[in-house]
Design a protein around this nucleic acid. Sequence first.
RNA 1: GCCCCCGUAGCUCAGCCCGGAUAGAGCAUUGGGGUCCUAACCCAAGGGUCGCAGGUUCAAAUCCUGUCGGGGGCGCCA
Length: 557
Amino acid sequence: MKEKIADLMHKKTGLPKEQILSLIEIPKDSSLGDYAFPCFSLSILLKKNPVEIAKEISSDISSPDFENIQAVGPYLNFFLDRKHLASSVIQKILKERSKYGSSTLGKGKTIVIDLSAPNIAKPFGIGHLRSTIIGNAISNLAKSLGYKTIKINYLGDWGTQFGMLIAGYKKWGKEQELKKNPIKHLQDIYVKANVDESMEQEARDWFRKLEAGDKDALKFWKKFRDLSLKEFNKIYSLLNIKFDVLSGESLYNKKMDATINLLKSKKLIKKDKGAEVVDLNLYGIGVCLIRKSDGATLYATRDITAAIDRYNSYKFDKMIYEVGSEQSLHFKQFFKVLELAGFKWANNCVHVAHGLYLDRDGKKFATRKGKTISMSEILDETIELARREIENRYQDLSKKEIESRAKSIALSAILYGDLKNYRMNDIIFDIERFLSFEGDTGPYLLYTFARARNILRKAKYKPSSKIEFSDLSDLEKRIVFALSQFPSVVENSYMQYSPNLIANYSFQLAQLFNEFYHKEKVIGAENEHFRLSLVDSFSQVLKNALSLLNISVIERM
RNA sequence: GCCCCCGUAGCUCAGCCCGGAUAGAGCAUUGGGGUCCUAACCCAAGGGUCGCAGGUUCAAAUCCUGUCGGGGGCGCCA
């Protein structure tokens, strides 16, 4: 539609189309039209008052797509022919259904997304939640724009901490405790060992043994890994998130030498204080540590190796790392190393960072000191609350029904509660936030959806392609316009790697619908048929939007 | 000390990419709304020097510089 305005204005003013396109905006207030063109830049060009220019153009312009084009002050306000828009948008939605909002923008392109990446033997914390669900949402967005996506869960399953764990387990470990609550037991051991300075040397020795392939060390490592993974999978299945590839740092253990040799052959590595590093001071980003003075590798080495391997496997057009902002320096460094090593695709790697969850004092949760918030506890607590709410509100529901609704509602609260935030912002962790079901929350959206579906059910509505479009009320117009915006919101959200735009859109749309719901009857209205198809379209778009955030709607609530 | 991110209503946050018309929500507060498609809802009211100071511009919450405050990071953890 912007294109059409640009065409019109181009003919009228001679201004280049691209410039016009970038000037067109959507007014905040619908009484100022659907699109607006500010005439200030024309005023400079024509050396005339912008108010007059707007007036002149408005008296001499018309198009079948717009029912009105009027000058308000220095603006030209374009009012779409709403009947026309309603008919095209609603028919499009009802025809495309779950495909509405998707496109073929990314056809033929592959995107690798590195997400979640929990650390073995550590609790799946609230921080991993962000990476998991933001990364997953970005993947959903990319997929709906036609990209081929590969989601990789790159486990933190290698590193010095395993030396610490094995040494600690040898000293304090109890088989029974490990079976009962593996992550908690390992976490306790880890914290204990970290505090105990006498463990340092032992830990280092164990990790070196592990890297050397020592059978005993490997046995422990595998045990810890398997048990942790089992716990993580519980959370993933609850969140309904699947990965295309389950990988881990350990996978590249054997390829590490090749990477180091490659870097050496490019003359990038130098010895410093017994360690091997790539000096990046020239770029103002310090040095990248490749091998420790005791011979062990570091995560930069593993990440570089993994990146090369992934490029060889997938020939990606872009690789997105959804990882907390605290690691930005690390990503800058190893992207630079890849670039210096001559890999052109290094420029297609991007660190999509997110802010941290901070504790009540506004400080980072420190896993090394055992200060974390366990995701499974939050999940359990939220589900429990949802169950109580349901039991209070509705009787005669089967246990099974209550259980499944409670799960959906709790999930929507958690997913939406996180995804509605701009990802770079730090968030003060507050359990109340997740337990709130009113206002700008996931349950509000599910409720609104269920309401809409309820109307359709009561009316025994059947979609039909023959819709009579009458004149629209103000609210109907606003809903139609909002529905028409969805595809561009999807695109924008992906381009900015900002799922919160989808969340914000969903909420605004739901608010509009609720207003409509209260003000205007659907069943029994003169234009009942049209309104039913509007309700149908609305619920479809809300469903599509939420599914991008991995929130699934429920028919009744 | 250097680098990155954030600073918008009492609280939690949108809006900033790509500058435009009176800066928006939710929560909380106050007051309304049910014989009517689900009140996890809706309506109304109060509440803002968009951290501060400069600059660019016809126009700045939005762009640039500086500054203050908070958070994170800065070689053998990941």
